[in-house]
Design a protein around this nucleic acid. Structure first.
Lengths: 345, 345
DNA sequence: CTGAAAGCGCTTACAG
DNA sequence: CTGAAAGCGCTTACAG
């Protein structure tokens, strides 16, 4: 110790051992809650740990034991609402389980670049959670080498995942189905759809749900418009739709797209919901405060993140029964932006 | 190798050494770009690395060398725009420097809980970036033990930081001053202010800038209203202000607060900007797409995150000259939500 | 230019 | 119940 009270080098189990008058193996037993330690010995060790301010070196633990109590999240984005909320859920659950969480952004969706990022993520040790909502993420999930513990956060898959590589998802099909049904029930002849950027699969679950609702109602199925993740994409898609006077209802892949659509409709003089109804996905924090407030489908991304970590935790700890982590069902939230079409008024 | 082509245990430097017919120290020299290795030897080692798919074990590297090429970000939040953008900037810069980034959320601002989180963050090894925009963050920054490399992302400080514990910040005072001046120049008699949650200092820089602009103009200085980080706080503060017919200009601590204020004014029948002007801070992605589009002050949080990492990198690598990382100056962006007050029309 | 030794701070068998 | 040994995969001096 120097005069400031800080040890130059943190105390190791050997320091604790000599302070407590035991061998360092005994210290190891105490900090690992090994049963076969005499209570008196344990007390002495605990006291030495306290006075020396000992903290077990996580790096040495990882090297010696071969496990690292860490998750790395691989994602193409950290700021869009869905991604950010998933990350929040993962961090929450990881912290509760005393896991460290790392984050690595996939800047490119170029296959070799993605593969390199996956390798670097694996270098951290521990498990992986890959957010596979976009081409980069989908590629990353596919590029994870066998034997590496990984959970994918995916769009609703066409077929269930393999047992050792679990996935989590929200019920995208049901979400889109509900939202479309809501708009049709208001009297709209059809519902136009602006998508978030698609991952690899042409028949995304949301598109399916939307199409199914239209088909069941005998409504025409317009061609979906490709949007982006942010308001700008909704704005430009909205300008296109605004030129078509037959458009009376627009479903948007997320609330930020919807925000852009609202703006585009405003600028082109189409009133919402009087002339056009708009609905989104997510129920992001701002959805309720827009004017008009936004009809949307609430998706529990934070819960999804928690579930992803719980699954990963299960495979890492090889617990027999992985606790089923239900992700809440998408819930339609009707607000001001949806109403009957002009013809019905 | 088994039939699937995956080694059970990853190749170590000893495996590479025996494959290349050299000692493992030589392998260590090659992977560390040590100059004194004969080119022919280097080639053989490189070839063995390639064929065995060797990757240096980061954990062992950290344990043996005592440095870990990692940053842990300590923050009370990961989803609000400013926090998320800072995190994005840190990750970007860290990835470019081949650093791993960890994230740990401060759920409580209770002093012992914060101290515990700081200790756990330190356990990861490497450096720390603490986002000190709120009580939890401010406490965390103060609780970082001496000797641990740390950079604080802070509100504009009253006095400059110590040399070995650098801070970064945006010019909050100038930002608030500019926004307030803009509103006064439009003819408003005064500007009401809704704050984001204050950290410890009563006289936050933004409040100072706002007050200074008012005082210089000889305007009355109303009592600031306490908001939150999200739209809900802006909404309730906005309802209060809407009851006062003398309120014609409102400055909001961030764009999400402004969104809530817009909603409150709409619900109470006060038109923006005809009756009341509203301005925010941040220029978040949605600000330009709101109706009315939002006058705001653009703050470069991503650049701030990059700068924070650059500073940390400097102290970790003990480079003599820490590259000055300029954070761009706040920039007023005038949009539809601000105009002359009703009296002047 | 290259190799043999010691050690980073732990854990995991193996003794007693 | 407790201790002595070997080892996790590297790096850092120290030899030659």
């Amino acid at each position: 110790m120097d005069v400031t009270g800080h040890t130059r080098r943190p105390a190791s189990i050997r320091d604790v051992a000599s302070a407590a008058g035991v061998s360092y193996q005994t210290v190891s037993r105490v900090i690992n809650d090994h049963p076969s330690v005499r209570p008196a010995t344990r007390e002495r060790v605990l006291a030495a740990i306290e006075t020396l301010g000992f903290r077990r070196n996580a790096t040495a633990l990882a090297l010696a034991s071969g496990r690292s109590r860490g998750v790395t999240v691989l994602t193409a984005n950290t700021t869009h609402y869905g991604y950010a909320a998933i990350l929040q859920g993962i961090e929450e659950a990881a912290r509760a389980a005393s896991y460290a969480v790392g984050i690595r952004v996939l800047e490119s969706d170029d296959a070799p670049a993605v593969a390199a990022e996956v390798r670097r993520a694996a270098d951290a040790g521990g498990g992986l959670v890959v957010i596979a909502y976009d081409p980069a993420g989908v590629r990353a999930l596919a590029a994870v080498p066998a034997g590496l513990p990984v959970v994918g956060v995916v769009e609703t898959p066409a077929s269930p995942p393999k047992g050792d590589r679990p996935w989590v998802w929200t019920d995208d099909r049901a979400a889109a189905y509900e939202a479309t049904r809501h708009l049709l029930a208001l009297g709209h002849r059809t519902v136009h759809y602006i998508t978030i950027p698609s991952s690899t699969r042409r028949t995304a679950a949301r598109t399916e749900g939307w199409r199914q609702a239209l088909t069941e109602a005998g409504a025409a199925v317009p061609r979906p418009l490709q949007g982006s993740w942010g308001p700008a994409g909704g704005y430009s898609a909205g300008l296109k739709l605004a030129r078509d006077p037959s458009v009376t209802a627009v479903l948007c892949g997320n609330d930020d797209l919807a925000l852009g659509v609202l703006r585009a409709l405003h600028e082109t003089g189409r009133r919402v919901p009087d002339d056009v109804s708009v609905a989104g996905f997510d129920d992001a924090p701002h959805a309720a405060y827009l004017t008009p407030s936004l009809t949307t489908v609430r998706l529990d991304f934070t819960g999804l993140g928690r579930a992803a970590f719980a699954l990963l935790h299960g495979v890492l700890e090889k617990s027999d029964r992985i606790a089923p982590h239900p992700v809440s069902v998408p819930e339609l939230v009707v607000r001001e932006s949806s109403a009957a079409p002009p013809a019905d008024r």
